[in-house]
Design a protein around this nucleic acid. Structure first.
Lengths: 149, 149
DNA sequence: CCCAAAAAGATTGTGTACAATTTAATTGTG
DNA sequence: CACAATTAAATTGTACACAATCTTTTTGGG
């Protein structure tokens, strides 16, 4: 086992946090050419992913799944509505709750995006890293952090 | 080997990109209580890490190490200078280049932060994940992405 | 039933990120 | 040497991300 000495802890290249930060941004960058033609940002994209994974979903539940709050989601959802990809309407049983659903145009977009993202997955998969295992490890770390807070 | 079917690719929970995005934000959140008392943001923190790792460094080289451009770095560096943690001055041999160095106050801050971040590392290390290996895998992925662009 | 507390979004303000453009300095080529 | 091309930062504009606050609606205890 390699131990990082006290002295070296504060080196950028020894920081797991920075590796995560950097790779996250680079992966988001990979999505840009796929999303741009549809006028989508990455945040809009993952928001749509979450919406597609739920028949009907509240902003609060979306925020929980996406690790985002209403301050971020409200403008994103308004934009997606403006683009015609989602519907926003209050729950008639509880007017505090805003329910979000996908539209027909949103469903069509989902079909179109499947091809591009499959291509992206292949681009990475040709290489030697086990992405499935990597994702499991990252999700494990995520769980530990969330359970400890 | 588990294969994700075409149909399930566009599920949020199957997206490696989202796991990276989420865990990166959560790890940054962990740093907040450590950085806040010093009036530092996470971006300022990693920028300082990079500066501490170099005697003298240009904005361009900082950007390369941090995966950030001058649009992000210029205001961050100005703030760090205002707080007294770094010096900014043009290279007398080439006035286009801005050279950044740490100050005595910056070096003192480094000492103070070492304790907090060691604590943070321990908080995660008690658990079952091999963070060293995880970092290696993430850095491997980062390398592949960068080499392919 | 009434009203304080809680809950869900929306809003506001600050600080990134990053693309695109601008400015100033330097380099390379005729 | 002159000047176009290149380079390094800074600036501008847009879109998050998140803390803090505000508004509206609902809930729960007396």
């Amino acid at each position: 086992m390699i131990v990082v000495s006290e002295k070296d802890i504060l080196l950028l290249e020894n920081q797991l946090c920075f590796s995560l930060y950097a790779v996250s941004k680079e992966v988001i960058r990979l999505y840009k050419p796929i999303l741009d033609p549809h006028g989508l940002t990455y945040t809009q994209y993952i928001t749509l992913l979450a919406i597609w994974g739920n028949d009907t979903v509240s902003v609060k539940e979306l925020g929980k799944q996406l690790h985002l709050d209403s301050g971020t989601l409200t403008p994103v959802l308004k934009k997606l509505e403006l683009q015609g990809y989602v519907n926003r309407q209050r729950d008639y049983k509880d007017e505090r709750i805003l329910l979000v659903t996908t539209t027909e145009k949103g469903r069509e977009l989902k079909e179109k995006l499947a091809a591009g993202t499959t291509h992206l997955a292949c681009l990475l998969q040709v290489n030697s890293i086990d992405l499935q295992q990597l994702k499991k490890d990252i999700d494990g770390l995520l769980r530990i952090i969330i359970d400890n807070r």
